[in-house]
């Protein structure tokens, strides 16, 4: 267990270090003077310019700059957005609420729907495969546009704009959760079909348990482990989907922040969001490791 934990921590540190390095490389690969790249299209005083040079150690050799940058990120300093006139950490923090609300709801919907679908359809119906196929092929941004066009503009059931209240959350959540739901359903259904062949399923059936009971009480636990493993990867998918969906539904959030930073060439913010997501990925993976212990009792005794 200790060994496992150490390996996990090592891998986490590696991902974070990689993300910092990728960001640093991006900063220095961008054509033009680094100071100009950092301030993007905003105009700053000579004092601020001197401050940036001092902060990033730009008057010193590249390895020193790299270490300076690494040290600042480790201390939680993601730099300054000169276009938003605030630290990147503050900018991300301000947009975090609406995004977490959207991502959390989408994840909840995706898990509930996919578990239900997988349990109900495994070895029972073939149409689910067609649904899965369409679900993975349809681009998220187009689903969002379709939902907006049909349910907001044509039918007027939901507001087209804004993050206020439950009604404004319904369509964005559906749009974001569709690709995740399909992937999870497909994976759990395929695994469930294998698990249902296992001898313990026959044993449970012979004890007089109903088919649904077997699926819920015995088989489901087995497919949760591989599904939970995907969680870290799902976070990446969520962040990506939110960029387009937030823009289409005019919602505040991390996606909008990122998109306007990309169009405005506000590199510190884009770098900050990449680093923030890397941290999120690492944290989620540690949670996933703990979830394994909850789901699979066999792992607990090994601990």
């Amino acid at each position: 267990m200790i060994r496992r934990l150490l390996t996990r921590l090592g891998a986490s540190a590696l991902v974070l270090w990689g993300a910092v390095t990728v960001s640093f490389t991006a900063l220095h690969l961008t054509p033009g003077n680094v100071v100009d790249v950092l301030i993007g299209s905003s105009i700053v005083t000579p004092e601020v310019r001197a401050q940036i040079i001092a902060d990033y150690g730009l008057d010193r050799p590249l390895p020193v700059q790299y270490v300076t940058y690494l040290g600042r990120v480790v201390r939680g300093d993601l730099g300054q957005s000169y276009q938003l006139h605030e630290p990147v950490v503050t900018a991300i923090g301000a947009q975090l609420g609406p995004s977490l609300q959207l991502a959390g709801s989408a994840l909840l919907v995706a898990v509930t729907v996919s578990v239900t679908l997988a349990v109900l359809t495994a070895r029972r119906s073939r149409w689910i495969q067609v649904v899965e196929l369409v679900g993975v092929s349809i681009p998220t941004f187009w689903t969002a546009i379709l939902l907006l066009t049909v349910f907001s503009f044509q039918l007027g059931w939901f507001p087209a704009v804004g993050a206020d209240g439950f009604a404004g959350l319904v369509l964005p959540v559906i749009a974001v959760s569709i690709p995740i739901t399909t992937l999870l359903t497909q994976m759990m259904r395929e695994n469930l079909e294998l698990v249902l062949e296992e001898p313990f399923v026959l044993t449970a059936r012979s004890r007089g348990l109903s088919d649904l009971g077997v699926r819920l009480r015995h088989a489901l636990r087995h497919v949760l482990v591989p599904a939970v493993t995907l969680l870290g990867w799902v976070i990446g998918l969520l962040v990506g989907a939110m960029v387009a969906v937030e823009q289409i539904f005019s919602r505040q959030g991390l996606g909008q922040l990122t998109l306007s930073a990309v169009t405005g060439k506000d590199l510190p913010v884009v770098m900050g969001v990449v680093l923030f997501t890397a941290v999120l990925y690492v944290v989620v993976n540690i949670v996933v490791d703990l979830l394994y212990l909850v789901i699979d009792p066999r792992l607990r005794s090994a601990a």
Partner: peptide, 24 residues
């Protein structure tokens, strides 16, 4: 392979956005 692992861990769309911020 470590490099590959790191890139695979980062969200794909964000990486693309980072590249486009740099290249336009």
């Amino acid at each position: 392979m470590r490099l590959v692992e790191v890139v695979l861990a980062l969200p794909t769309l964000l990486l693309a956005l980072l590249v486009i911020t740099v290249t336009g």
